[in-house]
């Protein structure tokens, strides 16, 4: 009987451990370089201290036609941050994995108008994300489809 109990505890522990590892692997499926539907930017999502963040790593038009210099976050509501380089800007912040291919509790920043929205991300398939930005209720928002940048020689 004692042997049976020890064996049962061992298998329950093993099950919990493997399910935790599986959850962490699923959560990290968000990590990579992604392109929104307008193809104006590319965003690299990485994990910092357990949460997920996305920074702009490529701009289709990196130079501001007015100043002739690299684009900055000129619409930032904080006057003192309007000169921060747009290349490198963290537009996705604080996403936490919920399970079932969904990350929530995050925000998405729109550099075109300087607004920040609540946001949820849903992994549709390995290389496709639905990113929804909203104010208040999830119902009042807009969803964009982002595609993962896949290396050509990756099978």
């Amino acid at each position: 009987m004692k042997k049976f109990k020890t064996l049962a505890i061992f298998f329950v522990g093993l099950f919990l451990l493997t399910s935790m590892v599986g959850d962490s692997e699923d959560a990290d499926k968000l990590v990579g370089v992604w392109e929104p539907s307008n193809k104006k930017i590319k965003v690299k999502i990485d994990k910092i201290s357990g949460k997920y963040y996305g920074k702009i790593v490529w701009l289709r038009e990196p130079i501001d036609p007015v100043t002739g210099k690299p684009k900055t976050d000129k619409n930032n509501p904080d006057e003192s941050l309007k000169d921060v380089a747009l290349k490198g800007f963290r537009m996705l912040k604080d996403f936490v994995y919920n399970g079932n291919g969904e990350w929530s509790e995050g925000t998405i920043y729109d550099p075109q108008n300087g607004s920040t929205y609540s946001s949820v991300i849903k992994l549709k398939d390995e290389n496709t994300l639905d990113i929804r930005g909203f104010i208040g209720l999830k119902t009042f928002g807009r969803t964009d489809v982002w595609k993962r940048l896949v290396m050509k020689n990756k099978k």
Binding site: S49, K51, Y53, R90
Partner: peptide, 16 residues
């Protein structure tokens, strides 16, 4: 050619 400094913590939002 550029640096941005940010701070974050487990229960708050990351900020520039």
């Amino acid at each position: 050619n550029s640096f941005t400094v940010l701070l974050a913590s487990p229960n708050t939002s990351m900020k520039e």
